[in-house]
C-alpha cells in the first residue's frame, strides 16, 4: 500500500471506531429504555412485572455484597485517613482529618469503589448468566414461548440494581467513615464523639446526594453493559468467558467516564 493510501485509511479507521462506539452506547440506551418500559409502563398495560425476580437479584447483587463492600471501604477509609494525615500533620491541621476523609469517601470513593465491587460481582454474573442462557438456547426458548427476554431477564436486574447500588453505597460511605474514624480516634487525637461531630460539620447534604446520583447511574451502566455483553455472546462456552471479561472491562471504563462527566457537571452547575 502506498503512503497516501495508508494515510487515507486513518480517518476511515477513526470513523469506524467512532461509529462502533456510538452504536454500542445506542445499544445500551435501547436496552435501558426497553427495560424502563417494562418496569414503569408495562405493568399499566397488563404486562406482568416480576417483583420476585427483582427481589432475588437484589439479594444477590446487594445483600450478598455487603461483607466485601464493608471490608474494602473500611480499609480505604483507613488508608484515606493515613494519607490525609501525612499531609495534614505537616500543616498542623489534624482537625481537618475527619472532613477530608468524609468528603472524599462520600463524593467519590464510596460510590466508585462500590461500583467496582458490583462490577466484579454482579456485572460479570449478568454477562455470564445471560451468555450461558444464550448458548444453551434458553433465550431462544423464552422467545418461542412469547416471553420477552428483556422483560424476563433484564428488567428485574435493572430494578434491583437501581435500588441496591445506592443502598450499598450508603453503607459503603458509612464503613469508609468508620475506617477513617478508627485512625482518627487512635492516632489523631479525636474522641469518638468529636470525630462524629467533626464529620457532621464538614459535610453538606450535597456531598451525599451527588454521590448517590452517581451510584444510581453506575448501577444502570453496569446492568446495561453486563446484559448487553451477555446477549452478544456467540456460540460456545469460551464465548461466555469472553463476554464476561468484556463486560467487566467495558463497565469499569464506562463507570469512570460517567463519573468524570457527572462530577464535572455537578462542579460547573453549582460551584459552591
Amino acid at each position: 500500500m502506498s503512503m497516501p493510501r495508508r494515510i487515507e485509511t486513518i480517518p476511515i479507521a477513526i470513523g469506524g471506531w467512532a461509529i462502533d462506539g456510538l452504536a454500542y452506547i445506542g445499544g445500551l440506551a435501547a436496552l435501558t429504555g426497553r427495560s424502563a418500559y417494562f418496569i414503569f409502563i408495562g405493568p399499566f398495560r397488563g404486562e406482568r412485572l416480576r417483583p420476585q425476580r427483582a427481589v432475588h437479584q437484589a439479594f444477590a447483587a446487594g445483600v450478598e455484597a455487603i461483607p466485601i463492600v464493608s471490608l474494602i471501604l473500611f480499609f480505604v477509609g483507613l488508608i484515606m485517613a493515613l494519607q490525609s494525615a501525612y499531609e495534614l500533620r505537616r500543616l498542623g491541621a489534624m482537625q481537618f482529618l475527619a472532613g477530608a476523609v468524609a468528603v472524599s469517601i462520600l463524593r467519590e470513593l464510596g460510590p466508585l469503589l462500590t461500583a467496582i465491587v458490583v462490577i466484579g460481582r454482579s456485572g460479570s454474573a449478568f454477562a455470564a448468566e445471560i451468555g450461558t442462557k444464550k448458548v444453551t438456547e434458553e433465550v431462544d426458548a423464552l422467545r418461542t414461548m412469547a416471553l420477552d427476554p428483556v422483560a424476563f431477564l433484564v428488567a428485574p436486574k435493572f430494578l434491583a440494581m437501581l435500588v441496591m447500588v445506592p443502598c450499598l453505597t450508603v453503607w459503603a460511605d458509612f464503613m469508609g467513615i468508620v475506617g477513617g474514624g478508627m485512625f482518627g480516634v487512635s492516632n489523631a487525637g479525636f474522641t469518638i464523639g468529636s470525630y462524629i461531630q467533626a464529620t457532621r460539620d464538614s459535610i453538606v447534604i450535597r456531598d451525599m446526594y451527588t454521590g448517590l446520583i452517581k451510584s444510581a447511574l453506575f448501577g444502570l451502566v453496569i446492568t446495561a453493559v453486563g446484559c448487553k455483553e451477555g446477549f452478544s455472546t456467540g456460540a460456545g462456552a469460551e464465548e461466555v468467558g469472553r463476554s464476561t471479561t468484556s463486560a467487566v472491562v467495558t463497565s469499569i471504563a464506562l463507570v469512570i467516564l460517567v463519573d468524570l462527566v457527572f462530577t464535572a457537571l455537578f462542579y460547573f452547575i453549582n460551584p459552591t
Partner: peptide, 23 residues
C-alpha cells in the same frame, strides 16, 4: 411486529436440540 408474533407463538410449541430448560 414482535407483539403480533407473540400471539402466534402462544399457539406454537418448540422443543430445542439441547432441551433449553431453565436451569
Amino acid at each position: 411486529s414482535e407483539r403480533e408474533m407473540d400471539a402466534i407463538r402462544k399457539k406454537m410449541g418448540m422443543s430445542f436440540q439441547g432441551s433449553a430448560l431453565f436451569g
